[in-house]
Amino acid sequence: MGSAAQDTAVHTGRVARTFIYLVLLLFALFYLLPFLVMLINSVKPLSEITSGNMLALPAVWTIEPWLSAWSTAQIGVEPTGLKPYFVNSLLMVVPAVAISTILGALNGYVLTKWRFRGDGILFGLMLFSCFIPFQIVLIPMARTLGILGMAGSTPGLVLVHVVYGLGFTTLFFRNYYAAFPTELVRAAMIDGAGFFKIFWRIMLPVSGPIMVVSIIWQFTNIWNDFLFGASFADLDSMPMTVALNNLVNSSTGVKEYNVHFAGAIIAALPTLVVYVVAGRYFVRGLMAGSVKG
């Protein structure tokens, strides 16, 4: 996506422009409001929420809900807060993202620079796997994880996320490498570099932009996943999203909305941070043709 400075041929009148700005600002409000309101209310005491105005700033500021959400709130039966689940998510996300990205890069490299008969069909099979409804694999996956002795464990979840993320990472790297001149690979072959040397010395050093796309995509998807976490994790490996849902939807006791909000923001924080730091690269890379098959 280019800069806003691009020369647009369309000219609009004053009334139209006012209308356009109005609509744009209204939508900005629409997108911001739920999150802002959540933020404001996460630093209010509970009494102010249940009796007061959700849009009002807190009369009494408190970080108590945040502390509670982090370390003492009741998740399921244990008053542990979200902290252990945050750690679970990290332990799951980091290896899953790393492995799926590396494999995706290698696959993309093979599928574009070392083509062989039938590679198009293989790619089609991988691509389709991105879009399957995961309900279709839940039952056999639960069985398989059991047989492999990985049921309810973080390595099991890593395996699941790697397998079902491969299609996307392969797609990203394949499209990126397809635009990379094949003559460079041939030159390197004549220079005496082999398969891995070419990958390591020629392809990887220019893969920065698509690495960012792949890492952000996988990180957000895996961090935000709920279905696999809810299906395959037990208490020791439960990821953040499942824990948050348990916190918010637990039927016992008073609903501590302010703690829920703090918890929700904590759960959203890592992906938001990644998005704020590297989002522009993500959108740019993604829009450079990678969303399409």
Partner: peptide, 11 residues
């Protein structure tokens, strides 16, 4: 070999 696009390693 000298290629049409020169095929210089950009990095």
């Amino acid at each position: 070999m000298v290629f049409q696009s020169y095929a210089l390693y950009p990095n």
